[in-house]
Design a protein around this nucleic acid. Structure first.
Lengths: 119, 119
DNA sequence: TTGACATGCAAGTGAACGCTTGCCTATTGT
DNA sequence: ACAATAGGCAAGCGTTCACTTGCATGTCAA
């Protein structure tokens, strides 16, 4: 749960997501290769990659002076398990909750439409 | 695609995720109810909820002076489709890419382990 | 009607973020 | 050996973020 933070933070930036996309198009690219696609200084890209790496979203492998970047899809799968499947429409419960709200502490309040604040 | 930004930004904050969790535990809560669980000023919670609402992650319904908040799981599903299923281990392609890298422009470099920079 | 309640709106603040620039080191190929 | 290449590190800077405080407005209940 602690690294859910790193994970979502890493995904929160469009540049970082674009990097993931580039690596998805072709895995194992070097820093310089990735720089070609991003309109940004090399150092900017480096920092983004560092964040992705910290979130365990990619692994690196040194080859001489080159740094190869490989995607790691596992954390994404964890997001799915913790944050998406969990929220899959539990329609029955949702309706139950709604009903509870509408009928709460009394039966009088009929679903009268909100007058103000809905312009 | 444009609102992928809003979506990920909304999920990037632990407070916001906690709010989602609270609403998942019981949907349709009011602002004040949600405030009880977050160690934060009411206005703080309001702003978080506004972001979640902007990301279309929850819908509100006014009931007199109360604002009821309901989860909307649809955007999460979109994240899954666009960002998780897409990255599901395409093992074959991954291995192909790796091989490409290792054998690139020559056959000599065997998978020699990185000497430096791996302390 | 009046007071308590539920919420909105606006401005201020410190910290985090995204990005750049400048310089340094290691590896490669000729 | 040396120039070119690939990358790292640190400091600086403007922007956005999370959060607070203070005051205003609409709604319910006695």
């Amino acid at each position: 749960m602690g690294n859910a933070d790193l994970l979502f933070k890493a995904l929160a930036d469009p540049g970082r997501r674009k990097l993931m996309d580039r690596l998805h198009a072709q895995d194992g690219q070097t820093l310089s290769e990735l720089c070609h696609h991003l309109d940004m200084s090399r150092q900017g890209v480096t920092q983004h990659l560092a964040l992705l790496e910290a979130a365990n979203l990619l692994a690196v492998q040194w080859r001489g002076r080159e740094k190869l970047h490989f995607l790691n899809p596992v954390p994404l799968q964890e997001i799915y398990d913790r944050w998406i499947r969990k929220f899959e429409r539990p329609r029955l419960k949702a309706l139950r909750d709604l009903k509870r709200r509408l009928e709460e502490d009394g039966q009088d309040p009929p679903p009268k439409p909100p007058t103000r604040r809905t312009p």
